[in-house]
Amino acid sequence: MNLTRQAFLRLTGIAFLTGAARKLVAAVTGPRWAMAVDAAKCATQPNCTRCIAACHQAHNVPAIPDPRHEIHWIAKEPFARTFAAEEDQYSPVRALPAMVLCNHCENPPCVRVCPVQATFKREDGIVAMDWHRCIGCRYCMAACPYGARSFNWEDPRPYIHNPNPEFPTRTKGVVEKCTFCAERIGTGRPPACVEACPQKALVFGNLADPQSPLRALLASRRHVRRKPELGTQPNVFYFL
């Protein structure tokens, strides 16, 4: 190596600055992914679980019978539970279904607490996971105020009945959750749950684009987010 100290320092500085600049540019100009759940549309098909099935099939989420060891990325819960503090006993929406999944918070507590950055915030807003790095301490599960995370208490493979070879399984001892289908939106496809919904009750889109259908919906319809008082700023919205 014929690198003088000066050249080395200069190169390091340049690398650092370009990295920071790229991040800044991406944060300003890149997409910010978000989702909206239309509870009324979802309610028209009370027994439908197509989004759950599609997600869990696409991502090799095991079907573990023991409820203590259950793993799910997306689940169906009534408003009465999802918005327990907001919906009083006379509320007309108590029984409406609210699909619950990772909120891909703007300010995610799980990312803050992870000691190895195995869960991290991408520039496009997705709270991603690096299953190669997770040490299985479950600090993120204690930190998530939404119960969005699941842990592999045992080897998940025996419970994956129809595996999708294009996506990895997980191994015992790591945490997992919804990834907003980072692998699909990278190739221009919508998330699996959105694609599977027969009622088009799930809307995925780019918050950074003022022309996006999602922004139009958010501007025109009243919506709520889960536990906004915690300052996590969820990126999953619910239409009543």
Binding site: C114, Q117, I135, C137, F151, N152, T171, G173
Partner: peptide
């Protein structure tokens, strides 16, 4: 308590 004890040194490898 670690789910992946073999990776515990990641805490030093990726100080956070």
């Amino acid at each position: 308590d670690m789910g992946q004890p073999a990776r515990v040194l990641n805490v030093l490898l990726y100080p956070t």
